[in-house]
Write a protein that binds this DNA or RNA. Sequence first.
DNA 1: ATGAAAGCGCTAACAG
DNA 2: CTGTTAGCGCTTTCAT
Lengths: 345, 345
Amino acid sequence: MVKKAVTSGDVARHANVSQSAVSRAFTAGASVAPATRERILEAADVLGYRPNALARAMISGRSRLIALVSPNFDNYFYASATRILSRQLQERGYSNLLFVAEPGDTDEIVQRIMQYRVEGIVMEAATLSSNQADECANTGVPVVLFNRYNATLQASSVVSDNREGGRLVADFLVKGGHKRIAFIAGDEKTSTSRDRESGFTSELKKHNMTIAARAVGHYTSLGAAEATRQLFSAEGALPDAVFVASDHMAVTVMDVLRDELGLSVPEQVSVVGHDDSEPAALAAYNLTTVTQSIEELAAATVDVLLERIDSDSVTPKSVVVPVSLNVRGSARVPVRVSPLCGLSG
Amino acid sequence: MVKKAVTSGDVARHANVSQSAVSRAFTAGASVAPATRERILEAADVLGYRPNALARAMISGRSRLIALVSPNFDNYFYASATRILSRQLQERGYSNLLFVAEPGDTDEIVQRIMQYRVEGIVMEAATLSSNQADECANTGVPVVLFNRYNATLQASSVVSDNREGGRLVADFLVKGGHKRIAFIAGDEKTSTSRDRESGFTSELKKHNMTIAARAVGHYTSLGAAEATRQLFSAEGALPDAVFVASDHMAVTVMDVLRDELGLSVPEQVSVVGHDDSEPAALAAYNLTTVTQSIEELAAATVDVLLERIDSDSVTPKSVVVPVSLNVRGSARVPVRVSPLCGLSG
DNA sequence: ATGAAAGCGCTAACAG
DNA sequence: CTGTTAGCGCTTTCAT
């Protein structure tokens, strides 16, 4: 049971001032005589007074609360993202309500969010239904979709340049002399997987190539293992390279390739991932992958959100964060110096 | 800018009832005629009314808010813990304020927490100073320390049986015929590292053995790499086994052992970790480790916290969650069948 | 610069 | 069962 908390009235009595004076002493830039303020702060300290953020939010209409909706995935990328987003918002004076969402949950969660009168919402998980987006728009609560977008929705979004990520990988693999290039998709419903794939295939096309084989890994380890077996048990020539839509899956792909199928990476098969998340850097994988900076994604998300909170603008804004290729050891690298050393033979 | 939200007064007018009737319609178990309630809910639906949780919290004295204080570590264990704790609290009707704490931050964070009138605090990060703990105790806000304890504090705690974890590893390594067993500590200030070590050494002692070498890895990758080099560049006989205080470090230890020092695991050196976190299960590491269930830790934490919120009891409670050894392939296993196959030669 | 007074949206007695 | 009334702790005019 919470004991009776100290109120501004208690402090006022103790400092022989009015209750509004106490309020002003705790409001930046309010007009209070330095001496009075001093006395008030002292009294507050003695009594252990902390302004009640709830009451303050009610009267001022500003809760300083942001809702963070994170997926219930055991996924390194979202774990880091949540931490970094939360930290950045915290440093800008907001506190975060964290909601962990299962696929079917969003409805109930959006309800709860609205009850706390948050000033903004960051959706890392899934996305909103159009009803939900409308509801937020109606109440004027800005929403930013993190790492996803939805063209039909009235919501801002911040994403990596996923098409460019796919394009970079295609270019790299082609220049590396690979002839039969496969792709393992993530979740086909997500914009990330689709964009990575479309950037990838369109760049292949420029080189007059197509995807030699394709499977879906659903962004899970199990799915990735299954997809790998499928690709490498087909009749005919096996792929000599695989682009995997996430590092989380790519690591499992390498496990299956090496331990189950006895293929060596990158000698027999090149593997390239996407995200540059923690396991990619482990020496045992040393994965060549597309680097996307979570810090940059988070910073852009926070900027977009706070700008929309502060201004009255309603127009959604979309930000695309650039990516780059981090060449490690899991894929054969293009030979540049002499064409004689090429892999045409 | 947040638009004027619909209030219970608006709904009341629309449904031709008093404002308190609306309040009752939204309170479980309040006495409202089914017909009236129906009419009210309909009006609420039409207008898009959501009860204001802030106002409700103010008057009822129950915010239904729990503060979750998580460390600003890129650490798989805490990432999962935060997600699971949050999810469980959410399912029990609470919402979570997430605070990401840097080592020096706790003071400012505790201040903010108290302003939101949370009903309880889960500390995953560091711990509270005694001042802070006192402050919480004075205001009657229960605190549960997750995965750590502090004997001098008025706070409940939930931890794994870290001593038992260390003991299990010692027993396993001794029975596996290892003769020169090393230990890499985490952060010596933490109870987890100290308890794992003390359980480990005391079990070795029972077998008339001591730690052959010891280094500190500070629970970081860099620290673990350095510790490994230190242990394996010493004069004289090298360790034939290492117990590493966390999986996060153990993975790096294996990297250094294999790639830098050219030692094979487990043929030349056995490695055992602690936590059974994600990288341990990766095929390229296949780490033998102590399993601690984050779900169980989280469930116990939530139980302890909510029990203290509901009852008026003030006595802190300590829970120790059991652990077990998950034998994979990174350590030589004890031979049981025939002593002839032993490793004495 | 300060105090008095008016609410923010809601719940909780208290009547009826 | 329902309406009336009194605040919860605070910010914000409006006087002074």
